[in-house]
Amino acid sequence: MVSDEVTRYTLKVELFQHIEKLGLQQSLFPASNEFIDKIVRQLEDITPTPHPLQSDYLPLLFGSWQLVYASRGTVVTRQIASIPDLWGGIKIKRVWQTLVADSTRKISASNSADLELSFLGEWRLQANGHWKWGTNKKTSTVYFNSFSIQATKPFGLSTWNFPELKIPVLEFLQKEAFWVTSYLDQEIRVGRGASDNLFVFRRE
């Protein structure tokens, strides 16, 4: 409906304005913003893709998405926040997720973060895994089978080239988590974890 399209546009403009005011560091650390959460809930109520994992909508999921808001932080930012002495010493440069078609009911997922550490330069962390789902076209099971770390600009020296250290996760150690894609359009995507942590992504 036209009214829904206008409402979605208005809500998204408002959403991005408030996220931009927070700034990247604050928007990704564990500190929920009730106003932003309320806007997201309103968007979820009028999502144009109620079944985002349906084959017709899968192409909308694929690509690179920048994480712009996490209501309770991320695995990485929660760890940083738990060590107050390091709060001012670590700067988040970018956090993003790349989704690529794998099979009919499977998507390859790569979660990446670029961090700047005092005295140690810039480093990239990455977790690689898959989304799987069955008859439910909104909820998927996520698991990661490898992690990697790489110094992209060690000690601030862009001329140095450190190899990527990749750490595989043995199958019996791989843990699964539920992931709900609660909103999806051409520009933004919203996901919720098992603990109802809210994640807002913007297409890059």
Results as ranks from 00 to 15, higher is better:
Glu34Ile: 09
Ile90Pro: 00
Phe178Ser: 14
Phe119Ile: 15
Phe62Val: 03
Trp160Ser: 14
Thr47Gly: 07
Tyr57Gln: 14
Leu24Asn: 07
Trp179Cys: 10
Thr152Gly: 06
Ser140Lys: 02
Pro59Tyr: 06
Lys138Asp: 02
Ser108Leu: 14
Thr141Tyr: 08
Pro48Thr: 03
Leu22Met: 07
Ile46Pro: 01
Glu176Cys: 08
His51Val: 11
Arg41Asn: 06
Trp131Ala: 02
Thr7Phe: 01
Gly121Asn: 07
Phe29Cys: 06
Phe147Cys: 11
Phe16Asp: 01
Ala81Ile: 11
Val200Cys: 05
Pro154Ala: 04
Val40Arg: 00
Asn128Ser: 11
Gln54Tyr: 15
Asp4Met: 10
Leu170Ile: 14
Lys132Cys: 07
Val190Phe: 00
Ile83Val: 15
Gln126Cys: 09
Phe199Gln: 02
Asn128Tyr: 07
Ile36Met: 04
Leu67Pro: 06
Arg72Cys: 02
Thr135Arg: 13
Phe29Gly: 00
Val68Trp: 03
Asp114Gly: 09
Leu28Ala: 05
Leu53Tyr: 04
Asn33Thr: 10
Lys175Ser: 08
Thr47His: 10
Lys137Ala: 04
Val190Asn: 06
Ile80Lys: 00
Arg192Ser: 04
Leu117Gln: 03
Asn111Tyr: 04
Leu58Gln: 08
Ile19Pro: 06
Thr104Arg: 12
Trp131Arg: 01
Ala101Asn: 14
Pro52Cys: 11
Leu115Thr: 03
Gln150Gly: 11
Val6Gly: 00
Asn197Ser: 12
Phe178Ala: 08
Asn145Val: 03
Leu120Cys: 01
Ser3Ala: 06
Glu116His: 11
Asp114Met: 02
Ser110Cys: 15
Lys153Trp: 01
Val190Pro: 04
Ile167Ala: 13
Lys38Phe: 14
Gly121Pro: 07
Trp96Met: 05
Ser82Lys: 07
Gly89Val: 09
Phe29Lys: 03
Gly156Phe: 10
Ser27Ala: 11
